[in-house]
């Protein structure tokens, strides 16, 4: 997959607006001020993808969605298991530390976080680009980081040994929440970004 620095900058510039909008949505949902860090566009070798969040064996939660329409992409929010429990507490209005197990209700709350984050992101990017884009229902995966991210790597491995992704995190109360938000556009969508940039 060929990219250039201008495309990366364009993706980041567009992406920051999407991230800001996603953070607004999360703030509303959680009742707390959530700010995004500036997203970065990176080409990540396939073999390095599982080595995030403390390594491929660490227990984590992945919230996975896809988008259809003009922007076809994969969206993954990945966060450590204990952080996912904290977010659930915020969503359902419990004291932080209450949630210890992620049952169906808790997973539904996390899925909704994925819906809000991705939906707000897509909404802003689609508005900027005058595109149509619709998110899929979320899948919430509680497992090792490597297994979660296999969902992404299996999709792109047949095309490339590297993945272009827009990556950012969210900051809550001055501390990074350690929620990684990855957006992985497919090759056709990248071409559309290139065309729009030129």
């Amino acid at each position: 997959m060929n990219t250039d620095d201008n495309l990366k900058l364009f993706l980041e510039t567009t992406g920051i607006q999407g991230f800001q909008h996603a953070a607004e949505g999360l703030s509303g949902m959680l009742g707390e001020q959530i700010m995004p860090t500036r997203p970065a566009t990176r080409m990540v070798p396939l073999v390095d993808i599982p080595n995030v969040l403390g390594g491929p064996e660490r227990e984590a939660v992945g919230i996975y969605l896809q988008s259809e329409g003009d922007l076809v992409a994969q969206f993954v929010l990945v966060l450590p298991f204990e952080k996912a429990c904290e977010l659930v507490d915020l969503v359902i209005g419990e004291a932080v530390g209450t949630t210890q197990v992620l049952g169906s209700m808790e997973r539904s709350a996390l899925g909704e976080i994925g819906n809000i984050t991705t939906g707000y992101f897509l909404n802003r990017v689609a508005t900027i680009m005058h595109w149509d884009a619709r998110p899929s229902p979320p899948a919430v995966i509680v497992d090792m980081v490597g297994a979660i991210l296999n969902v992404v790597t299996a999709t792109v491995a047949g095309i490339s040994d590297e993945v272009l992704m827009l990556q950012g995190t969210f900051v809550r109360a001055g501390r990074e929440v350690e929620v990684m938000f990855w957006i992985i556009p497919d090759a056709n969508s990248l071409e559309m970004f290139k065309d729009a940039r030129s």
Binding site: P50, E57, M144, G146, L149, N150, T153
Partner: peptide, 22 residues
């Protein structure tokens, strides 16, 4: 991901972490 590793060192353990669909 995508690697093949060989070892004859008795103290080695070959590990594939977090296999999902792989």
């Amino acid at each position: 991901l995508g690697e093949i590793k060989i070892s004859k060192s008795p103290g080695d353990v070959l590990v594939a972490y977090g296999l999902g669909s792989c």
